[in-house]
Design a protein around this nucleic acid. Structure first.
Lengths: 210, 210
DNA sequence: TAGATTGTTAATCGATTAACAATC
DNA sequence: TAGATTGTTAATCGATTAACAATC
């Protein structure tokens, strides 16, 4: 069993998939599943599933398989769904609104505590039950509340300066929807870039070359 | 130089990144760049860049590097940005609206020709300059216009039946925002899944294990 | 006990990196 | 010509798959 810091990115990317499939199985009232059956569902291999899970420990039982609820719990706590990282969002335009309506932050270990925007028309609106604040209030808010995660739903040209400010204010993790590669400009921060455009371009490529 | 169908997924995923960085360089009025310099910008290796590009042909010149505009063009046409795949979107809620406002379909080889929804409040609205149609008109529209790409911005529980219908009507490619793994239920279709929730969970994991 | 399925080691496969001759 | 940098082959590294003894 490896130390958490040794887990490869490939494995980590697959954990949320396992988590989601196990959720489905719970809904279907299935109690146990073998790596072989789960692999068939997910179109992967039993070997890979067992290999992945054993990075964190032996959660199965020979001759039986895995208890679905137990495994779901374990993966959840590995991922950190039980955390409550203070999270803020910058940008409450179409994208920001869509993200809040689409994603359950709480179920993913994040507590959305404030939303900021620069547009006077948007400031004051209620998004995800939270009143949108002016970006001018960002500094004060952060000094008081020390959020650890920021969701960036703003245009490329503002991303650098806002990110810089947030890093100075102690934010360590970024969920980055801006088309700006944060990790290339700052060290020691944690970033998940969402490049929606890249995803569509990849689809175009595949469509063309089918 | 390999046949297009032999290109590995890892390489394909990187092409849009190269494309985007070259775009930045064009804006900065840079004319040429070496694999070494580009690698430094992108925090990757010169070897990888040269290796990747040479899957498609030799676009550089010894002692000089790569002409940025020329390379940008080449990668663009490899990706298929000059195509005009007829594209439809299903679901014009927050997410659908955000996607259309965020993404330039035309620049990615896709022409958005119709948008459908099931909600009477949304039907008739204008989104991305297009009047949202009722889902009831989907079949007729597809028979007449034969779209090749569908963007799915609908809830998990509707995804299967809509996808099935679309596949029967000849749609071959899906940009899938629904939390439903299409590729596991249908063969011979092209799918790009966007799992936003997975991305946030990965961030939570990294935040926890830093 | 016999059957099933795990955890884990070993083998294979593919992707990344390094090296260097070719060439502009 | 000398210097730079490519295209491409070879070496390394890591990830996936296969195999099997351990064990429920």
């Amino acid at each position: 069993m490896a130390k958490n810091s040794d887990i490869s990115a490939s494995v980590i990317k697959r954990l949320p998939r396992y988590y989601s499939y196990l959720e489905d199985l719970i809904e279907e009232n299935v109690e146990r599943i073998s790596s072989k059956e789960l692999a068939a569902r997910m179109k992967t291999t039993a070997s890979q599933i067992r290999q992945d899970l054993n990075c964190f420990g032996g959660f199965g039982q020979q001759g039986y398989g895995y208890n679905i609820k137990a495994l779901h719990n374990v993966i959840g706590s590995i991922l950190g769904v039980d955390k409550e990282y203070k999270t803020i969002m910058i940008g409450a335009g179409n994208l920001g609104k869509a993200v809040t309506s689409q994603i359950s932050f709480e179920k993913k270990g994040c507590r959305l505590t404030a939303i900021f925007d620069i547009d006077p028309d948007i400031i004051g609106q209620t998004v995800a039950g939270i009143k949108v604040l002016s970006i001018d209030e960002l500094e004060e808010f952060c000094k008081e509340n020390l959020p650890s995660i920021a969701v960036l739903c703003l245009p490329k040209n503002n991303a650098f300066s806002v990110a810089k400010k947030l890093i100075d204010l102690g934010v360590k993790s970024f969920w980055n929807f801006s088309h700006f590669d944060l990790n290339l400009h700052f060290d020691n921060i944690i970033v998940e870039n969402v490049h929606l455009g890249d995803s569509l371009l990849t689809l175009t490529y595949k469509t063309k070359n089918k």
